[in-house]
């Protein structure tokens, strides 16, 4: 018997080392649903994009501020945090990726394919496009100066698809 509902939460430092941790943790959370390799890769990519966005855009100012302070020998400010909440409702995965960073002034613009504020960093501007391509639904909520919440949904598990068809 499969539980109707299953939830988990992660809270971690907004550093790039944790991008791999975040996507692998979310992928591990859904393995009992027997997702296909493709579904797992889709989820990992979408989580990786959202977490990367929080680190390089949401907390962009923190990174700029933190470095000189660290170099001058003073104690640098505390590392900001990223929250991930996952909820499984039967075979539907809901993922929330949240930061308390600078927020996005123009969400529509930010979600345009190839639009990036960081071409010099080698960013492709495909982050939100990838989330939208690999998840069933993506919603972005953001307040400038307060942070950003990305909500993503995906139906998973080949078994569930077959069961639904019966």
């Amino acid at each position: 018997m499969r539980a109707e509902k299953n939830e988990m939460e992660l809270k971690f430092d907004a550093i790039s080392e944790n991008e791999a941790f975040a996507r692998i943790a979310v992928a591990a959370f859904v393995t009992h649903l027997n997702p296909t390799m493709e579904e797992l890769a889709d989820i990992k990519t979408a989580v990786s994009e959202a977490v990367t966005n929080s680190i390089i855009h949401g907390y962009e100012n923190w990174q700029k501020d933190a470095l000189p302070r660290g170099l001058s020998g003073e104690k640098s400010s505390e590392v900001p945090l990223i929250w991930i909440k996952c909820r499984l409702e039967r075979n539907i995965l809901h993922i929330i990726v949240e930061d308390k960073g600078m927020g996005i002034a123009d969400i529509e613009k930010a979600m345009e394919p190839l639009y990036t504020t960081k071409p010099e960093m080698g960013r492709s501007g495909m982050g939100f496009s990838f989330m939208e391509a690999f998840m069933d639904d993506v919603e972005v909520e953001s307040v400038v100066g307060e942070g950003t919440i990305v909500r993503m949904t995906k139906k998973i598990g080949l078994d569930s698809w077959i069961a639904d068809g019966e």
Binding site: K44, S48, E49, G122, R123, S124, F130
Partner: peptide
């Protein structure tokens, strides 16, 4: 075994 849009950035650059 894994690539996100950062890989696209590397190739495009």
């Amino acid at each position: 075994r894994f690539m996100d849009s950062s890989g696209i950035g590397i190739i495009m650059g």
